[in-house]
């Protein structure tokens, strides 16, 4: 029973907000985000590390939240899909996925966008091959990936045009 599990006081920042929460040592980051913080934008599509739907940024790096123990995120900065909007408007990446139909059913989309966010932070001008490599851990079953690549290219071009950083 959970009462008997060893616990850790987790101090972390999620989407710019500091949290101090007691978590079971075996709590996965994805469950912490979804069930404790109510951030259900991060999805679970598999039984662990297969689909990439739960991708979030941990200290700027894309991570599978389903393969990350929440307790290991002490003092880490976590960013989820809910934090990408800029003043209530879609970010360049989100707009790309919307306008270019990078999202059909939308279930892989939060993870896909977070993986792309990590990619664009590292490499603001990725080639098609860079995008393929950068998102290779994320599975989409609707698009055949073609329009996802176009969505990321749209965002990269848009950021270049406006001279903004990806997480502006």
């Amino acid at each position: 029973m959970s009462k008997k599990n060893h616990k850790t006081l987790l101090h972390c920042t999620v989407n710019g907000r500091e949290h101090d929460d007691v978590v079971d040592d075996n709590t996965l980051l994805v469950d912490y985000l979804r069930e404790s913080l109510g951030l259900t934008g991060t999805k679970i599509g598999c039984d662990g590390g297969e689909c990439g739907c739960c991708t979030v940024l941990v200290d700027g790096q894309p991570r599978h939240a389903c393969l990350t123990l929440a307790a290991t995120c002490t003092d880490k900065d976590i960013v989820t899909i809910e934090a990408l909007e800029v003043q209530g408007r879609l970010s360049a990446l989100q707009r790309g996925f919307h306008e270019k139909l990078g999202a059909q059913c939308g279930f892989c989309t939060p993870g896909m966008i977070m993986a792309a966010e990590g990619l664009l932070r590292e490499n603001p001008d990725p080639s098609e091959e860079d995008i393929r490599q950068g998102l290779a851990a994320n599975i989409c079953r609707c698009t055949g990936y073609v329009k996802i690549i176009e969505s990321v290219q749209y965002a990269a071009a848009e950021l270049k045009r406006t001279g903004k950083e990806v997480a502006a």
């Binding site: 979804r34 951030l39 259900t40 934008g41 991060t42 999805k43 679970i44 989820t80 899909i81 809910e82 990408l84 909007e85 879609l90 989100q94 707009r95 996925f97 919307h98 306008e99 139909l101 990078g102 999202a103 059909q104 059913c105 939308g106 279930f107 989309t109 939060p110 966008i113």
Partner: peptide
Amino acid sequence: PLVDGPEKVSGKALYSAD
């Protein structure tokens, strides 16, 4: 673009498990 696209790209779309 899809009429329900903004919800999907922003994480606001609620699926059954949400």
